[in-house]
Amino acid sequence: MSDLASAIGLRAEEQGFVADLKSGSEDAFHLLIAQYSQPIYSLIARSLRDPQEAADVTQEVFVKVFRNISSFHGESSLRTWIYRIALHEASNRRRWWCRHKKQELTIDAPIENEDGETLCLADALTANGLSPFEEAAGSQLRERVTTALQTLPAAFREVVILREIEGFGYEEIAEMLQVNLGTVKSRLTRGRAALRQALTNDIATRTAQAAQTRIATNLRTVTQ
C-alpha cells in the first residue's frame, strides 16, 4: 500500500513538473537538463558509431523535448518519452551517416542482418581500428568492450546498452523502443551472444598477435 501511495505521489509530482515544462518554465527546463543530460548523452554516445556527434545529437534531443512538450500527455513516463526521442534521434543520425558517408567510402555499403535491419561494414572495421596510443591510454578492457559494442547491429546494441549500462527493465525498454517484450528478450539474447563472440574473437586476435610478436622477437634475437 505504501508503494502504491509513493507511486501515486511520484506520478503527481511528475505531473506538476510536466505542467511547469509545458508552461515554459526556465527553472523546470534547467532541472530537466541537470537530471537527464548525462544519461541521454551517455546513451547517444554509446549508440552512435562516432561519439564526437553525441553532444550535437543530445542538443537536438533537448530542443525536440522543448518543442514537443505540449504534445506529451502522460501516456508513458516522462523519462520513457525522453529516452524514446533520444533513441529516435540516434537512429536518425546513424541512418544519415550510412546514407551520406557510403557515397564517400565504399566500405560503408549497408549489410542487412537477420532482422532485416541494415548496418555498415565500416562499423565493424573502424571498431577494431583504434590507434596504439588509444589502446595504451586508459583502461584497455573498457575500450575493448566499447569497441566490441560498436560492432553489434544497432537494434541489438540499443537493447544491450539500455539493459546493461542504463539498467532499464524489459518493459520499459519495450515501451521506449515501441516493440513487444518478446522482441526485447530476443534482441538482448542475440546482442549478448554477439558481444560475447566479438570479445572472444578480439582476445583470440590479440593472443595471436602477441604470439607473432614474441616469435619475431625471438627470431631477431637468434639471428643476432
Binding site: Q38, Y41, L149, E164, L199
Partner: peptide, 11 residues
C-alpha cells in the same frame, strides 16, 4: 561480458 558492460559505466 555482463560484468564488463556494467563496469563500462556512463560515457
Amino acid at each position: 561480458v555482463q560484468r564488463s558492460l556494467g563496469e563500462l559505466g556512463p560515457a
